[in-house]
Amino acid sequence: MMLDTGHIFSPIKEELICFHNTSTTELIDPTLPYHRHDAYEVYLFLRGNALMYLEQSCYKLVPGDLILIRPGELHRCICLDTQTYERIGLNIKETALNKLSSRRSSLFSCFEAHAFGENNLTRLTQEQIIYYTGLAAQLIACLRSEEYGQDILAEAYATQLLVFINTLYRSSTHSPYNIMPDLVSSTMSYIKSHLAEDITSGHLEQEFHYSSKYISRLFREHTGLTIRSYIIDQRVSLAKSYLAAGKSVAEACELSGFSDYANFIRSFKKSAGISPGKYKAMRPPVRYRNDAVYGKL
């Protein structure tokens, strides 16, 4: 579903999805905008010549790069040529992740130990790639099977995979190199820090000492988004946080920087698929939390 906010919202219908895909021309389009999911995602890059954009970061992918993406985290993968593009993807809803976790071992830890777009990439050795792909193959086979017990085995393989992933991130010392232009990253950071204020092209010119036309062109080139659409997207995301924290719809509108209530309602519906009032009425399920991890957030 393409939204006027400039990005694609891709809802995940199943509780758990795992796929191993190979293609050659699917993502050769530098104008592809960011997208986001309503589920957690694990992405393992195996082959190709591609860039992964995660919020304000961009990485030149190397086989074995494992990336964790939280719900709502903007991301996109751009293939640079027609080389075979191969990856393994895992999407899992919060309810399923909570079910597989225990009070002692939270499987959320690897996802929530990092801020959006930061420190969410590690690199696997060849031996670890083989182990990971083997577990993923068994999980995919179980998810496709209708035979007795395959659903239970699918949960078992998913649990093994997620425990392995959490263990990797706990011991990872890998520091990926962010190749996003500083001006684009800084513009994103500025917008996030000033969402409750009026943000104009003049403000950006004054802050970065470049023409607004140049800033806008570079921003669109590296994100697939206009600056305006990015501002709206971030304000809706902030409004969701306020609504989840108990603020009223009117309060969330004002605190997230929307000067016009009708525009807020309209923008929120286009982004979230439901009205702010309905979103506020929804309550996230209770889940096991690792206090040591959440203390860092």
Results as ranks from 00 to 15, higher is better:
115 A>S: 11
85 Y>S: 06
84 T>K: 14
95 T>Q: 11
83 Q>C: 11
101 S>Q: 04
81 D>I: 07
149 G>R: 14
123 R>S: 10
152 I>L: 14
75 H>I: 01
104 R>I: 12
111 F>Y: 12
103 R>V: 13
143 L>D: 07
89 G>I: 08
74 L>D: 06
133 T>V: 14
157 Y>P: 04
124 L>W: 07
158 A>V: 09
84 T>S: 13
92 I>D: 03
97 L>W: 01
141 A>K: 15
78 I>Q: 00
79 C>P: 00
155 E>L: 13
146 E>F: 11
110 C>H: 05
106 S>F: 03
130 I>D: 12
113 A>Q: 15
128 Q>S: 06
139 L>R: 01
77 C>M: 15
78 I>R: 02
152 I>Q: 12
145 S>D: 07
82 T>S: 13
101 S>L: 08
117 G>F: 05
147 E>S: 05
110 C>R: 07
125 T>A: 08
156 A>L: 05
139 L>Q: 04
120 N>E: 00
145 S>Y: 02
112 E>D: 10
94 E>R: 10
99 K>R: 15
131 Y>H: 12
143 L>Q: 10
100 L>G: 04
140 I>Y: 04
99 K>D: 08
158 A>Y: 03
129 I>W: 03
151 D>W: 06
82 T>A: 08
116 F>H: 04
142 C>I: 02
87 R>T: 12
115 A>R: 08
134 G>A: 09
104 R>H: 09
121 L>N: 01
148 Y>G: 08
111 F>G: 06
95 T>H: 01
132 Y>Q: 02
90 L>I: 13
85 Y>L: 10
123 R>A: 03
126 Q>V: 08
147 E>R: 14
97 L>P: 00
130 I>M: 07
83 Q>G: 07
79 C>K: 10
74 L>S: 07
85 Y>V: 03
129 I>M: 14
75 H>Y: 11
107 L>T: 06
107 L>D: 01
150 Q>R: 13
